[in-house]
């Protein structure tokens, strides 16, 4: 009995971790690779959730499909934000204080604006598979968790391939590691950073759809993800996508076990505690050098 509970907690945690990977992907690119501390990212994820909600309520379309359609819009939003960020802060050198305040303001404004439009009620989507569940022996796979997890991992795999195989992807990696190599490749680092940042915001569209498929959403839902995504990002080692993926699964499993055996109210502290611990002991991350 206890053992079944543990197995199911681990399975739920792995599925949760798959979802966390999508949530963290954006931060892993913007913070890990571009050194842009976009703490507003969770806000954009919630924005993604509400877009999925609106379209789903009116037309009954699958939220994940909606997110894919909305990708260009999020990409454009990312471009605009990067342009403002670059012109106002990055260009003038290292004024991280104001840059941080800028993103903090964005996070807050997004949340409050959603609050004004949609109110503080929980919103959820209607999809045929949402109540279903697969079971193998004692193992349970709720479909509402399984589908986002699989799509998320697929998306994450795509990102890893993109970063390692394409010209632009390699240029993004070079931006973070070796700016000189970038000059040799004769590419404009600002353009590369804008593309990368836009991609990072685009992932928020997907993550938002996953989130509202998994659980009901309110405008302030984003907050609980701020620390979690940074925890995963730092734990996985800044700028390392594979490390991020592993860390996402780890945090998912640890949280799931914690909430199964100690109650869900303790779960938020787990990732934050781990983050504090990582920062204190090993800031380069578990898989960093």
């Amino acid at each position: 009995m206890e053992f079944d509970l543990l197995i199911n907690a681990i399975i739920a945690g792995l599925m949760l971790g798959g979802f966390y990977a999508a949530v963290t992907a954006g931060i892993s690119i913007s913070f890990g690779m571009l050194d842009i501390v976009n703490i507003a990212h969770p806000g954009f994820i919630i924005l993604g959730s509400y877009i999925a909600y609106i379209v789903n309520v009116h037309f009954g379309v699958d939220p994940i499909l909606i997110a894919i359609v909305a990708l260009p819009a999020f990409y454009a939003l990312g471009s605009i934000i990067y342009q403002v960020y670059y012109q106002s802060f990055e260009k003038h050198g290292q004024d991280s204080l104001r840059g941080l305040a800028f993103f903090f303001g964005l996070l807050f404004v997004t949340e409050v604006a959603l609050n004004l439009v949609f109110g503080v009620d929980y919103r959820t989507v209607e999809v045929p598979y949402i109540g279903g569940s697969l079971s193998i022996g004692a193992m349970e796979f709720p479909v509402r968790m399984l589908v986002p997890c699989l799509v998320s991992v697929a998306m994450f795999g795509g990102l890893i391939l993109f970063m390692s195989r394409t010209f632009i992807g390699r240029a993004v990696m070079a931006v973070s590691q070796d700016p000189q190599a970038l000059q040799l490749m004769a590419v404009d680092p600002i353009r590369i950073k804008r593309i990368a940042f836009s991609i990072s915001i685009a992932t928020a569209s997907m993550a938002g759809a996953f989130l509202i498929t998994i659980q009901p959403v309110i405008p302030s839902s984003g907050r609980e993800y701020i620390g979690r995504v940074f925890a995963i990002c730092v734990l996985g080692g800044l700028g390392s996508l594979p490390g991020t993926l592993i860390a996402a699964f780890m945090i998912g499993v640890i949280e799931s076990i914690t909430s199964t055996f100690y109650g869900p109210s303790w779960a938020p502290a787990v990732s934050f505690g781990l983050l504090l611990l990582t920062l204190a002991v090993r800031p380069s991350g578990l898989f960093g050098r």
Binding site: G227, A231, F272, L275, L276, P283
Partner: peptide
């Protein structure tokens, strides 16, 4: 714990602290 690191990490840690305390 965190002031030895870059300022950004301190900022993130303060976010985390709030949630840990609230929990």
């Amino acid at each position: 714990l965190t002031l030895r690191l870059r300022g950004v990490f301190f900022a993130i840690a303060t976010l985390a602290l709030t949630v840990v305390l609230e929990t």
